[in-house]
């Protein structure tokens, strides 16, 4: 499954690095604790979170994650979007809650 296959199902708005929509998604990781994501997520997974600060870009980049989905349409500050664009990290927002977003991704990955 590609990142772009989630666009409609999760009503995603792509905020940075559209190229990343071509990324293959091998799974998803759901957590708002950054050390947890750092330690336990795997390359190629999509990360679902409500965190919107600068460190999410570094974590996603260092772990080679497929991209970040920010839940509940939380506002992502401009400097973070710029950093993500520069580091080629795809950030998308969804109006869905973490529970709903994760549920839909899970179903699609089955």
């Amino acid at each position: 499954m590609k990142f772009k296959d989630l666009t409609e199902e999760l009503s995603l708005e792509i905020r940075t690095c559209r190229d990343g929509l071509r990324n293959d998604i091998t799974g998803a990781y759901v957590s708002d604790l950054l050390s947890d994501v750092m330690g336990n997520s795997k390359a190629g997974e999509i990360w679902i979170t409500l965190q919107t600060h600068m460190n999410i870009v570094a974590v996603a980049g260092l772990k080679n994650l497929a991209g970040i989905i920010i839940v509940k349409n939380r506002k992502v500050p401009d400097d973070i979007l710029q950093k993500a664009e520069a580091e080629k990290v795809t950030i998308a927002t969804t109006p869905l809650s973490t529970f709903e977003a994760a549920g839909r991704v899970y179903k699609m990955l089955q």
Binding site: L33, L34, S35, D36, G39, Q51, N55
Partner: peptide
């Protein structure tokens, strides 16, 4: 609140 300080570092 930023998701750090979970005692995992």
């Amino acid at each position: 609140a930023m998701g750090w300080g979970a005692g995992m570092g």
